[in-house]
């Protein structure tokens, strides 16, 4: 089970990994801001870091919207369909 140990090791170093990841994310946005856009088919193509912002917003929106939808409308107990079938 060497692979399990490797995963364990990675998990124990998660703060280091997180910092590395955050640094590379910042680098990505920075590069996107500095590099002139390859094309401007949409207005937001010219805005550096738009994709980062939009990805974050989309994820947050999905988390809250789906939860709202579930709790207000769609969630049922697991045995909801049992008595009918």
């Amino acid at each position: 089970m060497k692979l399990a140990r490797l995963i364990e090791y990675l998990i124990s170093k998660r703060s280091v990994l997180a910092v590395l990841l955050l640094v590379s994310m910042a680098a990505l946005v920075l590069v996107d801001i500095i590099l002139p856009p390859a094309y401007t088919r949409f207005t937001w193509d010219a805005i550096g870091g738009f994709a980062a912002f939009f990805g974050f917003a989309a994820c947050a929106a999905l988390i809250f919207f789906s939860r709202f939808l579930g709790e207000k409308l769609l969630y049922r107990d697991e045995d909801y369909y049992d008595d009918h079938e």
Binding site: L21, S24, M25, L28, V29, V31, D32, L35, G49, A51, A52, F53, F54, G55, F56, A57, A58, C59, A60, I63, F64, S66, R67, G70, E71, L74, Y75, R76, D77, E78, Y80, Y81
Partner: peptide
């Protein structure tokens, strides 16, 4: 650049908002 930004910042939002992610023993 576009794809990586979308993906990694989605990941960031997930980590920050983990406690708001719904779920539990329910069906929808």
């Amino acid at each position: 650049l576009k794809e990586m930004q979308v993906l990694l910042f989605t990941g960031l939002a997930f980590c920050l908002l983990l406690k708001y992610v719904g779920g539990g023993p329910k069906i929808s």
